[in-house]
Design a binder for these strands. Structure first.
Lengths: 168, 168
DNA sequence: ATTACTTAATTGACGCGTCAATCATCACCC
DNA sequence: GGGTGATGATTGACGCGTCAATTAAGTAAT
């Protein structure tokens, strides 16, 4: 490993920093606007929406908790906390799995299904209003490409974190 | 207002939705990676960093709380909570303003200044590793442009939220 | 069947963010 | 100078997210 390569050494230029800051701030802004809009129109959070969506698409509106966590890419404990809150609002319920009674099965309640149906259209409308309408199709294609590169990079990076203390 | 315009009516296509989801997930990933990296290298959060940076750049390492809030674009109460936590860790301290004793002045402690100096290089290195290194200069330019459009759009959108219930 | 290991899920503590309510001070004005 | 209202900042409640610890149930070995 030469370390003299083109990467990782010098600190970002002012321009690079500017793009970084704009990116972080804007994505935060988007996130916040989405959360606020969803809350205003449907009384749920983006997290709620993701869970309701996953359950709605599942066989019989139920999923094993670990499968759900995997499906939406959440840590177990995060999901557990969130399900607790959703359960107390009556959107889902939890039962023990039949075959393996360690496992919990999460099931959409009628109320949950209704809430999801009611939130779906506003959710899509928000995506359009906040995001799609801001950009041309070319912008969208560029953004998709760039986002993909970024994600790949981060995933690769994550693999090489505490590794190879190496010779010297 | 004709409402028959090109925007806001139909729901997003699968492609559009794909870009949306990738964007949201990736920006979340970036945010999380940055927070984790900063915590690991310097024991602070991105919020801490922003505050330390703003104070470091200020005259005598001190700012009126409202000015600081404005500078970093935070709500007052968010800042207040955060300053409370930072104060208890000894990074900053708060005093009453001399002229207007409603106002609080936030001041960098020695410890805070030291922490900021120590975190600055790792912070910049993370930006490079996580973000800049993932992208070509052209990507970065595109992303800057697109981000700008998105931000402008959101700001404009925010202006026209609860407005003009209109005739029918 | 006891011990040990692993896996599923939950819990508790704590930092973070938002909203609504509150408290203190200033500014004005009669 | 005693209301009245604006302004600066804090607080409390609550949802959200992470980490570390824990509980509970399955699996395997002896």
């Amino acid at each position: 490993m030469e370390q003299g390569g083109k990467s990782g050494r010098r600190s970002p230029t002012a321009q690079e920093l500017g793009v970084w800051r704009a990116y972080v701030e804007t994505s935060e802004y988007v996130r916040q606007a989405m959360a606020a809009g969803l809350h205003a129109t449907s009384g749920i959070s983006p997290g709620d929406y993701g869970i309701l969506l996953a359950l709605s698409e599942a066989e019989e509106g139920r999923l094993r908790s670990s499968v759900l966590a995997e499906g939406i890419g959440w840590e177990r404990s995060r999901l557990s906390h969130h399900l607790g809150r959703m359960e107390s609002r009556g959107l889902i319920c939890r039962k023990k799995s039949d075959n393996d009674s360690r496992g919990a099965v999460v099931e959409l309640t009628d109320e949950g299904a209704r809430t999801f149906r009611a939130s779906s259209a506003p959710h899509l409308r928000l995506i359009r209003q906040l995001f799609i309408d801001a950009l041309t199709p070319e912008d969208l294609a560029d953004l998709g490409r760039i986002t993909g590169k970024l994600r790949n990079h981060l995933e690769a990076e994550a693999g090489t974190q505490g590794e190879a203390p190496a010779s010297s």
